[in-house]
């Protein structure tokens, strides 16, 4: 187990020196700022687009618009930026042969998977939380209304979803030498989950609920207990996927 700790430190050093942590910080700070900004600008842009002569009645933007932008940014772009960054985490080491030495020295293969998973997930949390804190500050400043009472309830399911999504990326990355497999696996899983949502009966259990129901949670129109089954399923799937990754890497020729 101690080896896992040593390898976690190596992974953090790698993420830092390869600028991954810096990139994630910059990107998600940008997302954090642009969420309230887009909320503010959208009515203006629509006004301009509709021509100067007409005056359309536009409702003033509220905190709801700001948070809607936040979730859109994270779920439609943010999580893919992250999977691209994590996609090569294991495949790159296998194709370059950097693990041979360390495994020969007694580094257990499960420690490799666990460390990479933990450090990637920590970066996921960093990303979601940085964007959240910045959006939160600006939203309080620009939209001091009471229309978004449960902001945190809407955000933490993103962190839980990351448990599974990062696990899928890591799993994909153990499958082969190609650096795209991790990204591909995540995209495929996301598509499958989206398709599964077409069946009404399983909606309640579908992990996709953690990234689709956020606004209802924020506005308070939906209670967290509604997605609780999906949350548990997500956690179980995450554990299973990490376990499968360990099994795959154990069979891998390094």
């Amino acid at each position: 187990m101690i080896s896992t700790w040593y390898f976690i430190r190596k992974e953090v050093m790698e993420a830092w020196r390869n600028y991954h942590i810096l990139m994630i910080t910059i990107v998600f700070v940008i997302f954090g700022i642009s969420s309230p900004l887009f909320a503010k600008l959208t009515p203006e842009i629509l006004k301009m687009a509709s021509g100067s002569g007409m005056t359309i009645k536009m409702p003033d933007p509220t905190s709801v618009d700001s948070w809607q932008q936040y979730f859109k940014n994270i779920i439609q772009i943010g999580i893919y930026v992250l999977t691209v960054i994590f996609s090569s985490t294991i495949s790159n080491e296998i194709s370059r042969g950097t693990l041979v030495n360390l495994v020969a020295k007694g580094l257990p293969r499960y420690a490799i998977v666990l460390s990479k998973y933990i450090v990637a997930y920590a970066q996921w949390c960093l990303a979601v939380l940085i964007a959240f804190l910045i959006s939160w500050g600006y939203t309080l400043y620009y939209f001091p209304d009471s229309k978004s009472p449960n902001v945190w309830t809407g955000v933490w399911p993103l962190l839980v979803f990351g448990l599974m999504f990062v696990a899928v990326t890591v799993f994909g990355s153990t499958l082969g030498k190609s650096n795209y497999l991790g990204f591909l696996a995540s995209v495929i899983v996301f598509i499958i989950l989206t398709l599964l949502n077409l069946f009404k009966d399983i909606k309640k259990y579908n992990p996709i609920a953690l990234v689709t129901d956020n606004m209802s949670l924020v506005k308070g129109t939906e209670n967290i207990s509604h997605i609780m089954p999906a949350i548990w399923i997500t956690i179980v799937l995450a554990l299973v996927t990490v376990y499968l990754s360990v099994l795959v890497l154990k069979q891998k020729k390094l």
Binding site: S3, M13, K105, G106
Partner: peptide, 26 residues
Amino acid sequence: YLPDVPEYYGYMTPIEYLTLCGRITG
């Protein structure tokens, strides 16, 4: 073990790499 073409983490210094190796071997 000395592999035919040893591959390292290029972002580390030799001291950092050897420290990692030494720790893994306990």
